[in-house]
Design a protein around this nucleic acid. Structure first.
Lengths: 358, 358
DNA sequence: CTGAAAGCGCTAACAG
DNA sequence: CTGTTAGCGCTTTCAG
């Protein structure tokens, strides 16, 4: 393990180039307003000395850090078990890289870590925070508000402006959970299915609630309508999907279609259906949500599901934060076109992907 | 999005407590050498003002950052497609949290990003770096060496001390790829299989090479020995596994066992075997590597595989770095017991997990 | 045990 | 256009 060596300072570069520190600083930061030959001399000195600015010193005066925190609560390990999070992280990373900003990852695993995160955020190391707020009782959003750091949420936070209960100025990015669910269920209905069940996600997360609402929406349109016995609570995991599916089969053996809250849940459901001798999609059609490639494409049969662009969500979160920081200057359009903006939330569209399971 | 507010300074706290800045500083940093009543007054002032030290100012003088960089090269998206990386990250995060250190994630996606990463590392924002060096031609290790930052590698780097080609002082953590592979292949041989094939990983990664070596080791013991026609190159992905398995079946229809370089490869192989009407394990026994829960437990049949403790690898990398930084003080023992240390590499043990596929 | 003073390395007015 | 002059907020000798 190499020891860190002491790096040359502005002073040293200035001396070598025979100019003042101020001039070197100017050249290093864009270099406008410095005559070409001088600038050239400075650049050579920088090069020869291998000078790299000390960020701590710079931040101290500029109050900028070129870094944003990504806060992830992972009370259960689910966050890490599916590629969802990794994809968002990648989107965030890409966008930040474009703006020359660093990604500081703050993992929390319980109350103990919350204090640490709050302290860090308040300590002014970062220009802003991207927060994945998962659960209803999560104290993190409050702590972060108190830290007084510009923040964008991933996923609609509980009690957001749209539902009327939320605090002002909450910015978030989410996909159209409700619309996507509606589309999936309508597709199942369009197949002629009349007993369409729903295996929900963990209902302390808004995504699960919104998908359930979408399911209800679609069923409101049809004669038979909504039957509460066809709704079983899961938890976004394969195991939860199995459990829920078993319960559903026991309760309503006549079910002919299942909309699972995500692909992992669908995976569990498929397994139980196979065990029970039900054919998919002949006896029971199955649809999922997320379109996680490694899951949805490789189930047997391949899964019909609702696709959301996870990486784009991450990218958009970062962009929104950065735009807010720069006071709305350098606004650009998202690569996905123009997403719908409702209140302070940005909702990305979803697409139904038809495969063999429904 | 809340605007950041200006935080109180040491000065303010000092004024409020009626002491000097120096005294406040002492109290904030452990507080030894300050008389109790005074210290108490300071603590109250800190509390009332909600004072949090400005890290930039502090770093400027202490030259410590309480942050380490995690550098991940992801030229292909594989890094993110499997949970491997997420698990290591989690291990790293846990260990860093214990030491009150932050995790700065540096994602790179090509040459363009390399310069950015090198600059960042050289800029002295972090106390050290954890680097996942994946590919043979990756220029990253070199750049990082030049940055002069203490570094620990994840996975044996190319040309490490053990092979004699590596630079001095390279520290890394890896699992016992070779030994694990050997165990898996011996297990297949123990089942009475005589035509044991190997679907390799991407051979520009040391893990793939080491597993191939383990395969050869095991075969060196038996009469028939090593048959090069039974080795097909894959790339650690399911698609690569399918491709390799198809080629293998074409070339050696008499194969009766397959050792896949990882679980994802095994997944692809299983699919092709099923298509071809081969029964697993009756006709062909299959073993994988990694024991990724969401994959290995849920294949059909469940996969016999070599387990490595990925999270522990991450944790250990962080610990090694931190220990090195503190000059070897506060040394603790790893939770996994005492891993083997060869040269500057720490090799974690692997375990064969028997399931139905072999 | 406490305070005064001197910077850490950099940027940002302000003069020239 | 370039240099001079102040700090940013903190830690750390060094006196008292």
């Amino acid at each position: 393990m190499t020891e860190a060596v002491s790096r040359p300072t502005l002073e040293a570069v200035a001396a070598r180039a025979g100019v003042s520190r101020a001039t070197v600083s100017r050249v290093v930061n864009g270099g406008d307003g410095v005559r070409a030959p001088l600038a050239e001399r400075v650049r050579r000195a920088v090069e020869e000395l291998g000078y790299v600015p000390n960020q701590a010193a710079r931040s101290l005066v500029t109050r900028r850090h070129d870094a944003v925190a990504v806060v992830v609560a992972e009370p259960e390990s689910r966050v890490f078990a599916d590629p969802f999070f990794a994809l968002q992280l990648r989107g965030i990373g890409k966008e930040l890289a474009v703006h020359d900003s660093q990604l500081v990852l703050l993992l929390t695993e319980g109350r103990a870590d919350h204090a640490r995160v709050a302290r860090y955020l308040a300590g002014g190391h970062v220009d802003g925070a991207l927060v994945f707020s998962l659960h209803l009782d999560d104290p993190l959003p409050g702590l972060i508000r108190d830290a007084g750091v510009p923040t964008v949420f991933g996923g609609r936070p509980h009690g957001d402006p749209d539902t009327g209960a939320g605090g002002p100025g909450v910015v978030y990015v989410d996909c159209d959970n409700r619309g996507g669910a509606r589309a999936a269920v309508r597709h199942l209905l369009g197949l002629g299915r009349r007993r369409v069940a729903h295996l929900t996600g963990a209902l302390d997360q808004t995504s699960a609630v919104d998908r359930l609402d979408g399911y209800r929406d679609a069923l409101a349109d049809v004669p038979g309508g909504y039957d509460p016995r066809l709704v079983v609570e899961g938890d976004f995991t394969p195991a939860g999907g199995e459990r829920a599916m078993r319960e559903l089969l026991g309760r309503c053996p006549d079910v002919d279609a299942v909309f699972a809250a995500n692909d992992l849940t669908a995976l569990g459901a498929l397994r139980v259906l196979r065990e029970s001798g039900k054919r998919v999609p002949e006896d029971v059609a199955v649809a999922g949500f997320d379109d996680m490639a490694p899951v949805a494409e490789q189930t047997d049969p391949p899964l019909t599901t609702v696709r959301q662009d996870i990486e784009e969500m991450g990218r958009l979160m970062a962009r929104l934060l950065l735009e807010g920081l720069s006071g709305g200057r350098d606004r650009e359009r998202t690569t996905a076109g123009a997403p719908a903006v409702r209140g302070k939330g940005v909702i990305l569209p979803t697409t139904l992907i038809r495969r063999a399971s429904a």
